[in-house]
Every structure is written in C-alpha cells, then in structure tokens.
Amino acid sequence: MLKKMSLGDKFFTVFNYFVLVVIACLMVYPLLYVLSASFSNPERIVLGDIWLFPQEFRLDSYITVFQNEDVLIGYRNTIIYTVLGTAINLLFSIMIAYPLSRKDFYGRGVITAFIMFTMFFSGGMIPTFLLIRDLGMLDTIWAIVLPGAVSVYNVIIMRTFFQNIPEELREAAEIDGCSNITFLIRIVLPLSMPIIAVMTLFYGVGHWNAYFDALIYLNDEDKYPLQLFLRQMLIQEDMSGMGSAGSEVLAEHLMQIEGLKYAVVVVASLPMLILYPFLQKYFVKGVMIGSLKG
C-alpha cells in the first residue's frame, strides 16, 4: 500500500502509526504494571523493582482479598445493581429516544429542550437526598438504580441512531399493518444492536464502578456494592497497623497494604475488562452512527 503513496502520504501514515503505538503503550502499560504488582512481593513494589513482569510471584494479596466474606457479598450486590440498573437504563432510554426520533411526533423539540435542560441544571445533592428519603427509598436497592435511570447524553446518541433508520421501513411496515410498538420491537431494536451494545457498556461500567450513591443512601452493609467493601477493606487494613509497637512490624504491614491496593484494583476491574472485548466490535460503529446527525 505504501508503494502507491506519495512521499508525504507515506510520512503521514508512518507518523500516525508511530503516534498510535506510543498512545497504546501509554494506556496498556499502567494496566500491566498494576497486574504485575498485584502478583509481586510487596517489598519489591516499595523498592520500585516492578517494571513489566511480577517479581517474586505471590498470591498473598488475592488471598487476603477473597478471605474477606464481604467481598463476595459486594460482588453479589454489584452484579444485581449492574444488571437491574442497566436493564432499567436501556428500557427508559429507548422509551424516550425512539419517540423523539420520529418526525411525526408532535412537540418533540420542546420535550428535547426540557430534557437537555437537566444536563446543565439540577437540584444538587441535598435536594436529591431529601427526595429519595421522602419517596421511602433510603437503604433500598431502588436508591441505587432509579435516580440515574436516564442519561440525557446517552438518550441523544440513541435518538440520533434511530433517526438514521430509513423512513421507508416504517412506511412499509404500516402498509403491512404493523403498529408502532411492533415496529419498534421487531424492526427497530434488531437493527439497533450496535447502539444498544454501546449503551449497555456505558451504563454497565457506570453501575459497576458506582460507590457514591451507595455511600449516601445505604446504611445496611449487606446491601453495600463491591466498591464500598473494597474501600472499607483498604481503610481497615491501613488503620490496623497504626497502633503497632515496633517500627519493623509497621513497615512490613505498610508493604502488605501496598500489594493489597493493586489486588483490589484488579478484582474490581476484571469483570468489566472481560466484558469489553465482547462489545468492542459494536463500540465504534454505534458511537459513530449515533453522532452523524444532531
């Protein structure tokens, strides 16, 4: 391919590849470093001996993490919050985005303006907390999955994707006696799998990494998500050594905490890293098509 290019095009192509390789290395290396550090001797981490591969391979940090029963409870709760929350997000986003994409939907411009208004102005944390309390959702699963049921940004992307579906399909379906709901379920949604996969990834990652809402709205530890349990584990491990009598014991404890931090990062991130490759093929297509028209 390079043989058919001019000298300037060749230089531009090589330069692009070089920049992309550098950016890829900058993004991949921190992940490899965290993974290697989590399997290494904490003393080698503190000494800065970890560069790419684990040093003095150990599983102590992971054993400490999974010996804590709260981690399994947190995994269970986070999976429930992520699956249920993502399903609610997709349902409401589709219910809003599809009507707004229809040219025959009266008042869609006004409704879109009202929806976009919420992107720039909100009541704030305290009014939101009071609302959740008055609705009786404190310390329940609904306090985690309902307040963020709709992302306006994602709705706009989804609406734009729906607008790219040919109008002739709807006209042909109407001639065959297809109702609006049937057209949405049997024609629009199967054609929209790329954007649905992208929204699943966006919403799923958001729910998996969420901790702030749980920190505010939940009091029962049996309902805590994984992120809160891991935060508590690090704090408790960090504080448990503060009263140690000997400086050597304290130094050893701090080194163990250093290894534990990296193991916690891997444990919390691994499910999403596993999920991403299965949705990656839809990712670019869904976002690009969803951004073609405003």
Rank of each mutant, 00 (worst) to 15 (best):
Leu47Lys: 15
Thr64Met: 10
Ser61His: 03
Glu56Thr: 13
Leu59Asn: 09
Gln55His: 12
Asp70Cys: 03
Gln67Val: 00
Gly48Asp: 14
Ser61Ile: 02
Leu59Met: 14
Ser61Asn: 10
Gln67Ser: 10
Tyr62Gln: 05
Tyr62Gly: 03
Phe57His: 02
Leu59Ser: 09
Arg58Gly: 09
Trp51Asp: 11
Leu47Met: 14
Pro54Met: 02
Leu72Asn: 08
Ile63Gly: 07
Tyr62Arg: 04
Ile73Gly: 05
Asn68Tyr: 06
Ser61Pro: 07
Leu52Met: 13
Arg58Lys: 15
Asp60Thr: 12
Ile73Pro: 00
Gly48Lys: 12
Ile50Phe: 06
Phe66Ser: 01
Leu47Asn: 12
Thr64Asn: 10
Arg58Tyr: 06
Val46Gly: 02
Asp49Lys: 02
Val65Lys: 05
Leu72His: 10
Asp60Asn: 13
Leu47Thr: 10
Thr64Gln: 13
Leu72Ile: 08
Tyr75Met: 14
Val65Tyr: 06
Val65Leu: 09
Ser61Thr: 06
Glu56Ile: 12
Ile50Cys: 07
Gln55Arg: 14
Tyr75Asp: 10
Asn68Thr: 04
Ile73Val: 15
Leu59Phe: 08
Leu47Pro: 03
Phe66Tyr: 05
Glu56Lys: 13
Pro54Thr: 00
Asn68Trp: 01
Ile50Arg: 09
Tyr62Glu: 04
Asp70Asn: 00
Asp60His: 11
Tyr75Arg: 11
Leu47Cys: 08
Gly74Phe: 05
Gln55Leu: 14
Ile63Lys: 14
Thr64Gly: 06
Asn68Asp: 10
Ile63Ser: 10
Asn68Cys: 05
Trp51Pro: 03
Ile73Leu: 11
Gln67Met: 05
Gly74Pro: 05
Leu47Arg: 15
Asp60Arg: 12
Gln67Trp: 00
Glu69Arg: 13
Asp60Gln: 13
Val65Cys: 08
Glu69Pro: 13
Phe57Met: 08
Asp70Ser: 00
Asp70Ala: 01
Ile63Thr: 14
Val71Ala: 04
Gln67Thr: 08
Ile63Val: 15
Ser61Lys: 01
Tyr62Met: 06
Val71Pro: 01
Phe57Thr: 00
Val71Ser: 02
Glu56Tyr: 09
Trp51Gly: 09
Phe66Cys: 01
Gln55Tyr: 12
Val46Lys: 07
Glu56Asn: 15
Glu56Arg: 11
Leu47Asp: 15
Phe66Trp: 05
Val65Ala: 07
Asp70Met: 00
Trp51Gln: 13
Glu69Val: 12
Ile73His: 04
Ile63Asp: 05
Phe57Ala: 01
Leu59Cys: 09
Leu52Gln: 08
Glu56Val: 10
Asn68Arg: 03
Leu59Ile: 11
Asp60Ile: 08
Gly74Leu: 07
Tyr75Gly: 08
Ile73Ala: 12
Gln55Glu: 15
Val65Met: 06
Leu47Tyr: 11
Trp51His: 11
Ser61Leu: 00
Arg58Thr: 13
Phe53Met: 05
Asp60Gly: 11
Tyr62Ala: 02
Tyr62Phe: 15
Leu47Gln: 15
Leu59Trp: 11
Gln55Ala: 15
Tyr75Ser: 09
Arg58Glu: 14
Asp49Leu: 03
Pro54Asn: 02
Thr64Tyr: 06
Gly48Thr: 13
Asp49Glu: 04
Val46Tyr: 05
Phe57Pro: 01
Val65Phe: 04
Pro54Glu: 02
Leu59Arg: 07
Ser61Arg: 04
Asn68Leu: 04
Val46Phe: 06
Val46Ala: 09
Thr64Leu: 09
